[in-house]
Design a protein around this nucleic acid. Structure first.
Lengths: 159, 159
DNA sequence: TATTGTTATACTCTATAACTATA
DNA sequence: TATAGTTATAGAGTATAACAATA
């Protein structure tokens, strides 16, 4: 059976990528939820693991989130005790964002959960096939001008 | 270089699938927009190309859209002249949904655009590699219990 | 005059409940 | 009593504009 009757798109590369990718994103969100973290929040937290604390504008630019929305996001992370705002001494308009010990612990806990997600998502494939798939996806990501570690949905919604 | 510094997830299968899949969904939506069609609307229209006109409840169940939201969706498609509601004579509570000639024309126009999208999304890969990738994605879709032609985001949002 | 962070507003989507007409 | 369709409401998420403090 070559294709679903009346659905020529169902076996196309764009649809399959979008379909499997969306399911993968759902499973990712479900694994994060018990830890009290949203995918957006994890994107921010994992960006702050580097040493030079960026300000909100820089972080927003790097992730493709609008700076207006970054305010509330940092508010939540600060309320959770995972991030701190430190007034920059070079430029007193901006805050240097720094992960707290608790924030680092959350990132670490999420990273511990990710291998289980990889196994769940890739359970239909042999180990060599998984490696092949990852290689092909990296080629696609590069050809589509995607930045490593930056999710396009943070920038633009699909629908 | 094995992985992005400070971003262990960036090269993982779940993230790459979600990242490339989300970009693919954006490109799909951008191709549809000039035709006045949203991905949701196309999902509905392409489901109605079959001969036995389903009612709204059946269509909602098949696509994973809530029947409450199906009302407004069908309203728009009817206002655009692409779908008609016909009172069922067997069960006068329900409507048999039927594509109009205009509706069939829109589906046809979208289907004409899809090959171009496939080329754009897959431009980073050789033809054999594209075929390999499609095969691997189908295996994943099957292992993840995804239904052919049904997009998971219609059922549940990722974020 | 430009930039960082902030707030307010409106608009879109979605989730839930409740209503009507039929069965 | 259950089901198909509908409507209303509230809640999340996002986009836009405007503001205060600082450069």
């Amino acid at each position: 059976m070559p294709s679903t009757p009346g659905a020529p798109f169902a076996d196309s590369l764009p649809f399959l990528l979008s379909q499997v990718g969306a399911r993968s994103a759902q499973l990712f969100a479900e694994r994060l939820a018990p830890l009290g973290v949203t995918p957006r929040a994890y994107a921010v937290l994992s960006r702050l693991t580097g040493s030079p604390g960026p300000n909100q504008q820089q972080l927003a630019d790097a992730l493709g989130i609008h700076r207006n929305n970054m305010v509330g996001l940092i508010d939540e992370l600060e309320a959770a005790g995972w991030v701190q705002r430190h007034r920059s001494k070079q430029d007193r308009r901006s805050f240097a964002l720094r992960l707290t010990a608790g924030g680092r612990a959350v990132v670490s806990r999420v990273d511990d959960v990710l291998p289980g997600l990889s196994d769940e998502v890739g359970r239909g494939l042999t180990a060599p096939d998984r490696a092949t798939l990852i290689g092909l996806l990296k080629q696609l990501a590069h050809a589509l001008d995607l930045t490593a570690g930056v999710h396009p949905s943070l920038r633009l919604p699909a629908r």
